[in-house]
């Protein structure tokens, strides 16, 4: 595999990751969201493996396998079980309507392209052009957290944001040291469990996962 071909494949995978971030923004169904999230993890893991192969960095293979097991199988499964236990299959509720969210998302992509343009000029890595996509994925994850009402969708937004950070690390510096990556992976896993406990707590207290309800904690309501 030549460097050129690897850069092309990496570009296609970056485009697919960007597409899946937008997919998360426009998807209305819970299980659909989880599927898209799993696909995003899959593209991320493939891209990491391709970068590892081109750069000859073998610790990236370990990160790729870690991403595959954690973000494609473990996390979606945990969230799936949660959704089933909490019995939420209804359509996702959003604060801003979906077409507007899409337009904001496009603006964010342009913004991140503009922001990373100087870095692109300086960098000599094969993956330099995907940095804009990585930043866009982070921002789109953030946008998803802001524009959704329900806790579960916000968590998926958070995890997509983490995917973006991971992708940024791979495309900017060929990945973080393995120790850091292992730590982050463990954190994410623990976070998913804690989220689960929180969901149940929130629901038993408010009878809903709508985080608007948390505003009622103000004193004058009592």
């Amino acid at each position: 595999m030549t460097t050129n071909l690897a850069a092309e494949i990496n570009g296609v995978l970056a485009a697919l990751i960007l597409l899946s971030s937008f997919g998360l923004l426009v998807q209305r169904r819970m299980t659909g969201l989880l599927h898209i999230f799993a696909w995003q993890g899959f593209f991320l893991s493939l891209s990491t493996a391709v970068v590892g192969y081109t750069a000859g960095l073998h610790h990236l293979y370990i990160s790729a396998v870690l991403t595959l097991t954690l973000k494609v199988f473990a996390l979606p499964y945990i969230l799936y079980v949660l959704i089933h236990k909490l019995k939420i299959h209804r359509e996702v509720e959003e604060v801003v309507n979906i077409p507007t969210t899409m337009l904001i998302g496009i603006a964010l992509v342009i913004f991140s392209y503009h922001l990373t343009a100087p870095i692109r000029e300086l960098s000599t890595l094969v993956t330099r052009s995907t940095l804009a996509v990585a930043l866009a994925t982070v921002l789109l994850g953030l946008l998803m957290m802001i524009t959704r009402k329900k806790a579960v969708t916000q968590i998926i937004g958070f995890l997509a944001l983490e995917n973006g950070l991971f992708f940024a690390a791979t495309s900017a510096t060929y990945g973080m040291p393995l120790v850091v990556e292992l730590g982050v992976a463990l954190d994410i896993l623990i976070a998913a469990f804690i989220f689960g406990i929180f969901f149940f707590q929130i629901r038993t207290t408010f009878d809903s996962l709508d985080l608007k309800q948390l505003e009622k904690l103000k004193e004058e309501d009592f």
Binding site: G11, A14, I110, Y113, S129, V133
Partner: peptide
């Protein structure tokens, strides 16, 4: 996205 990915990735 197609147009953007032309500028970003190609």
């Amino acid at each position: 996205l197609g147009m953007l990915s032309f500028f970003i990735l190609e």
